[in-house]
């Protein structure tokens, strides 16, 4: 009898746990259900790719539901490469890319789907160089960054930059980087080292743009790079100059638009073939003043024409 009551006690516990899980999980199915029922009678645009752009793409998708109720946009991240791969497989309508598509990928897409991807520049992204606010440094040059990050680089300690960093006892610069296939990684490497030199191994390769800023905010010894839009109050952005003699520019909207800030790049969207119908309307809206307003709101740089 005692055994029995203990058993039923266990069963009750299990039921409670399951019920708890069900309550939590039942919140999301409701949401997706409504999306699904909407999608059944409307057009759904599938949009996938760069993690740099994913927040922006999501903001566009949300705003666009207010513009027209007959189109919904499904956005997912995964990286520029993932987006292009999906485009090649023909499983998405628009791929987001923080780098330009490679000729090989264009060819594969054309072979696989019979349509040539069309390129749209939808905004600009400035990569900011982040450090902890305790670092007594406000400016850095591209050659210095190259020596910090590049193979056989000569700058490994903060004192090599001519500063005394008292809140980093070891004085060793901790390099924060991104996983080696992210668009951000490729772009930063190219901007610093060109195509001939690689990054030195031993950097901390984090998985997302946000993680980089988050970790630097907790690590006085660290330096890292990430999109300008990811800045928080826990980190400091450095002013960057192309050479020691050149003027330094802060990663601001103004400097990016004036093309004076050295580490800025365009953000791309690729459609499969010449866009038509709902996809064309969506891309046009993104490029319009209204769409570009959101670009600025999320910390990216809108197109000049606006």
């Amino acid at each position: 009898m005692r055994m029995n009551s203990r058993f039923s006690y266990l069963i009750i516990k299990i039921i409670l746990v399951l019920a708890y899980g069900f309550v939590i999980s039942s919140c999301s199915p409701k949401d997706s259900e409504s999306v699904a029922s909407k999608a059944a009678s409307h057009v759904t645009i599938k949009n996938k790719g760069s993690d740099t752009i994913v927040n922006l793409a999501q903001a566009w998708a949300e705003m666009y539901t207010g513009v027209t109720s007959s189109v919904s946009v499904e956005v997912s991240g995964g990286g520029s490469g993932t987006g292009v791969a999906a485009l090649i497989n023909g499983t998405v309508d628009i791929a987001n890319c923080s780098r330009q598509i490679k000729p090989k990928e264009l060819e594969q897409a054309a072979q696989n789907t019979g349509k040539v991807p069309q390129e749209f520049i939808v905004g600009y992204d400035a990569l900011a160089v982040y450090v902890h606010p305790d670092v007594p440094l406000d400016k850095i040059t591209i050659p210095q960054l190259a020596e910090i990050y590049g193979e056989n680089g000569t700058i490994t300690q903060w004192r090599h930059l001519g500063i005394k960093h008292s809140s980093c006892p070891s004085d060793k610069i901790i390099r924060i980087s991104r996983q080696s296939n992210s668009g951000t990684y490729f772009y930063f490497r190219e901007a610093l080292l060109g195509t001939d030199r690689d990054f030195r191994i031993g950097s901390l390769d984090l998985h997302g743009s946000k993680d980089v800023v988050e970790v630097i905010g907790r690590t006085p010894c660290a330096i890292g790079y990430s999109g300008m839009g990811y800045a928080t109050s826990h980190v400091k952005m450095l002013e960057v100059a192309t050479t020691a003699d050149a003027p330094y520019y802060a990663p601001t909207l103004k400097n990016v638009l004036a093309k004076t800030y050295p580490i800025a790049r365009p953000l791309y969207m690729y459609s499969l073939g010449e866009p038509t119908g709902a996809i064309k309307a969506y891309l046009d809206w993104i490029l319009s003043a209204e769409g570009q307003k959101i670009v600025e709101k999320l910390g990216f740089v809108p197109l000049e024409s606006n």
Partner: peptide, 28 residues
């Protein structure tokens, strides 16, 4: 997630599994 030979418990490292997970998603 850093390619590094550890010198003690406070060094950072990278494992075989994590490398596959981080990189397989974006290779051709």
């Amino acid at each position: 997630h850093s390619v590094n030979i550890p010198s003690g418990p406070l060094s950072w490292i990278r494992t075989l599994t994590a490398t596959i997970a981080a990189e397989l998603g974006e290779v051709a």
